[in-house]
């Protein structure tokens, strides 16, 4: 892993409020989120070798990235301590993944998270991974903890496929939420205690899709090896950081302002209308780790 942007001492100094909240998060993530109302901590970590030239994921590198980011996000001694802080051995855990065929959550990441959950004492039989079947999946209905992880991509209806949107599959009729550019997706999180049960959000930015075109809204020319993961307990803050990176990439690629269409308004509305988290850059404590080249975001 390449040198960090912020060393641990800097992090502890600059992240005062968030660090205190994160320490409490080791005991209660939900309580920590409430304490983080003024600042939501988000960790962006990158590694130049997370993917190869064919966009294939290097599982070993990815595991190292996740571990380092987890320790920093929760201000823990190491990743195992962080996982033990947010997951109890008696938890039943649902990993909400995303299987869109052109850009799915890497199976390597699913395997790594499953292994870390086992490391935290959770029996493998109490860990479920699902995407489109979660609505009817009894394991997800009864899960006491959820891990939400998906790649970021542009999207026909919502502007961006986000962590917030990833929970739309918990709904009986997802198309009912497509109106007004999916403005109210955050309301889904209030159903089935989804917000309360979610312990971690991982936005996969290994090869994000920054522009949609073609018959399937997927053009390989519009993905790039950003080689990043963005972690946080606040899905809105994580999505807001991801959206900034996508916007910056579009600006750089097209050489002019090319706003995401439709605008991903559901991210801002998740804060202003639904109170799910914070999208306001002034209220996001972004920590960047690892590979710095073409990071596209220095600070918020």
């Amino acid at each position: 892993m390449s040198p960090r942007t912020v060393n641990r001492r800097d992090f502890l100094i600059t992240g005062g409020t968030a660090a205190a909240a994160a320490a409490l998060a080791l005991r209660s993530p939900a309580f920590a989120r409430k304490l983080q109302r003024k600042k939501s901590r988000v960790v962006l970590i990158r590694h130049a070798e997370a993917t190869d030239r064919l966009n294939r994921t290097d599982g070993e590198v990815l595991a190292g990235m996740l571990d380092e980011a987890m320790a920093v996000l929760f201000n823990a001694q190491d990743a195992a301590t962080a996982w033990s802080g947010i997951i109890r051995p008696d938890d039943a855990v649902g990993i909400k993944t995303n299987v869109w065929s052109y850009l799915r959550t890497p199976t390597e990441l699913e395997d790594i998270v499953r292994a870390r959950l086992r490391g935290a004492g959770v029996d493998d039989k109490r860990i479920s991974v699902d995407d489109r079947g979660v609505h009817d999946n009894a394991a997800f209905r009864s899960a006491t903890a959820l891990i939400n992880m998906r790649p970021m991509r542009t999207h026909h209806w919502s502007g961006l496929g986000t962590l917030i949107k990833n929970y739309i599959m918990f709904i009986d009729r997802p198309s009912d939420w497509h109106g007004d550019s999916c403005a109210d997706l955050a309301a889904i999180w209030k159903q089935q205690r989804l917000a309360e049960r979610t312990r971690l959000n991982v936005l996969v930015m290994l090869t994000p899709l920054f522009h949609g075109s073609g018959a399937h809204h997927f053009n390989p020319e519009y993905v790039w090896r950003y080689n990043g993961l963005i972690l946080g307990t606040d899905p809105v803050a994580v999505d807001a950081v991801g959206a900034r990176i996508i916007e910056a990439k579009r600006r750089a690629f097209f050489g002019e302002e090319r706003p995401i269409n439709p605008p991903p308004k559901h991210i801002d509305l998740a804060q202003t209308r639904h109170g799910l988290g914070v999208a306001d850059p002034a209220r996001i404590d972004l920590v960047t780790l690892g590979w710095k080249k073409d990071m596209l975001i220095e600070k918020l």
Binding site: S213, G214, A215, H216, F218, N219, P220, E221
Partner: peptide, 15 residues
Amino acid sequence: GTGLLLFWKHRYFVS
């Protein structure tokens, strides 16, 4: 493009 070829002709769109 690199990995995607699109064209149109008469009333057909091809991807």
